[in-house]
Amino acid sequence: MALPETLLLLLLIAIGAGFLGSLAGLGGGVIIVPILIVLFHVPFVLAVGASAISVLATSTTAGSAYVHDHLTDLRIGMFLEIATVPGALIGASLTIYLSKAGLDPYLLVALGGILLLTIPGSLLGHHDEIPQGVVPDARSRRLRLGGAYLDRRLRREVPYMAARTDPALGVMFGAGLVAGMFGIGSGVLKVLALDGALKLPMKVSTATSNFMIGVTAAAGAGVLLAAGYMNPVIAAPVALGTMAGAYVGSRILPGLSNRLVRYLFLILMGALAIELILRGLGLQ
């Protein structure tokens, strides 16, 4: 297939991935890498680079709206980036190193495994919208990791404080590592830290996670770009497509019941994950 047709197809698939990812609440990044590898035969490390750029573009689009609504907690986001950014730098470096060493099959199996492990986490809902009885640890109190936002539905101001910072930093390092290695947002892990360890209100958790996904993706994408593992002819249409799809998805989301879409998306993700594992094991 000639390049214009290939890239047009890539753009259309990226629009679909961004659209479905947005409706499913997972982002399109989780299926972009497998699609590029399976359908377009793009080398692993270049697929990771293109996906990181698309995650960066999509989270920047949503992030500008969240920041504007004052829902993003900049203190907590910046504090946790101390863990995610080194994780992403190490993750992207590992992918480059392993790819140079000819270990792509292991990376395929690892990504497939990560995607399969993401599925149960994606089916779990958030915790209570506004957690009660939160006990901040010493670091949270010292850095004053808390804030307040105006909840339009509840029609009142909701104050909050972060609870346990040590486990949150640990999970965030892992989230950064996975994001850097595989070019995905790893929002499931980030929400695990923000919801489970810090016990933030759901709206703050979602907005802050989005803020962090952008900064973490920039860390991984920066390493891949500077090391020469980013092909803009692949990454640009993927970024344009996922962003456009995610934008349309977010516009029609309020009018849809997204449970069915989420299940379909997870089935597609599971099938792609199994395909990656089979390829990595040389069974495909």
Binding site: V85, P86, A88, L89, A92, S93, I96, Y97, V215, A218, A219, G222, V223, L224, L225, A226, A227, G228
Partner: peptide, 15 residues
């Protein structure tokens, strides 16, 4: 600083 270090130093080293 970590973001800049990654892009300007680590990426170039890996290249």
């Amino acid at each position: 600083a970590l973001l800049l270090l990654g892009t300007l130093v680590l990426g170039s080293y890996l290249a």
